[in-house]
Design a protein around this nucleic acid. Structure first.
Lengths: 231, 231
DNA sequence: GGGAAACGGAGGCGCAACCTCCGCTCTGCT
DNA sequence: AGCAGAGCGGAGGTTGCGCCTCCGTTTCCC
């Protein structure tokens, strides 16, 4: 019996293995990704693909030949970055000291978010790439919960903090970062320090948190809403 | 000599005293203002005047007959509310206890801002009504500065807080409020409480604020920038 | 009753984003 | 070297939206 099928495509696959691009096409694809990174990071997802094309030095047609639509390009770009956020959380959990781990998590997550308007939009609002973002959140949540539990068990974090407080803190810091981006992009560190001091466990003069945290289902509901633009 | 001029308009005035409107016109003017309040408060300044007209139950033409353009309507609406913010600050300064006064200021300002998307946009970004907003800020600033100085002199507020921190705190709380508006509009109180605990004067374990506050000139510069829409 | 004031909303204008199309260019295989 | 066809650019079609105007009709008030 001769091997019946040694051709490069034994079975029709779900992703039919795209044949390699011609060299110029591949070069342009890279340029487009770099340009999109630049544009979406600094100006947010509401930037147009015409902007991306201009930044890349190619025609719009070339962008659309490579990425069927805007969403595909955005997913290609941010998948990796969202993964990086999850990794940050996992590394923070590996930190032996609970308090240090938590602070590291908040600080490093904010570092990613503060400089990247597109990432803020993809993670905080379910506008593009819902599936992948959702999967990332599903991996994130237990890690954050574990971090908080551990810190509270060790008595270094106030008792009334909940996992859903973390995205809110990141949101607030992002808002500050975005607001001052063109004057003092690092200002969020100031407010992170303030918040961190507020996270310390109870002592004299502490204000009990007057409003319960969102439960995870509420958090889902919040994120489902679109902000004001796109889709 | 008969009095040369007893007519209702002795001199051409800067505001030439608009003659009273016909009854139906006045009624519609009120409806428009109410509708605009509703629409701009909940959906923000990017709502269209067509939306306002629909909400008011009048034609767009009627809106434009009464208010020369969108900016005029917005100014008419928010002048009073911006004034209310200044008044909040002044009342807080009148409070005998420095710490209570500061907390009251933060809490009441956030109460105004959190429920009012249009007010957030007018105060935080110089998109509409720049003059009036600027004047309000000029009145606000010394009051806030006085509040902070007093609290620090009395030793109830950490030393490294600056006047420009107040708008940033309000911005962050507003971001949280807007984000969760449709699920838990009051969630900002939770994060205000957290921040307030972080404002307490130094003690063990406090993180020195790692980044200096913006100086007032930087704050001006920040507010001059437009966010992403309108103008 | 009549003249002025006010009304409504269709539609002009301008803009901006997404995406398509087609005549030309470039690559890489033979 | 030549050629088939993959790839390219970017003008422009399409859509959608917001601001604002215009004018035939309605309402008010004297």
């Amino acid at each position: 019996m001769a091997q019946p099928d040694e051709s490069p495509q034994p079975h029709p696959q779900p992703h039919p293995q795209p044949r390699p691009l011609r060299r110029d096409a591949e070069r342009n694809r890279q340029r487009i990704l770099e340009a999109a990174a630049e544009v979406f990071t600094t100006r947010g997802l509401e930037a147009s693909l015409d902007d991306v094309a201009r930044q890349a030095g190619v025609g719009v047609g070339t962008v659309y030949r490579r990425f069927p639509d805007k969403e595909a390009l955005i997913e290609a770009l941010f998948e990796e970055r969202i993964g990086a956020m999850v990794q940050v959380a996992e590394e923070a959990l590996a930190e032996p000291d609970a308090w240090t781990g938590l602070v590291t998590l908040l600080e490093r997550a904010a570092t990613h978010m503060a400089g990247d308007r597109g990432l803020r939009q993809t993670t905080m609002y379910a506008t593009y790439g819902q599936d992948k973002v959702q999967r990332a959140r599903d991996r994130m949540q237990p890690v954050v919960t574990a971090m908080i539990d551990r810190a509270q068990r060790e008595g270094v974090l106030r008792d009334d903090i909940q996992p859903t407080d973390v995205p809110f803190i990141e949101l607030m810091l992002s808002a500050a970062a975005e607001y001052a981006a063109h004057v003092r992009p690092g200002i969020w560190r100031r407010y992170l320090a303030l918040i961190i001091d507020g996270l310390r466990p109870s002592r004299d003069g502490i204000t009990p948190l007057p409003e319960p945290a969102l439960v995870p289902e509420e958090m889902m509901e919040v994120m489902r809403r679109v902000p004001r633009d796109r889709r």
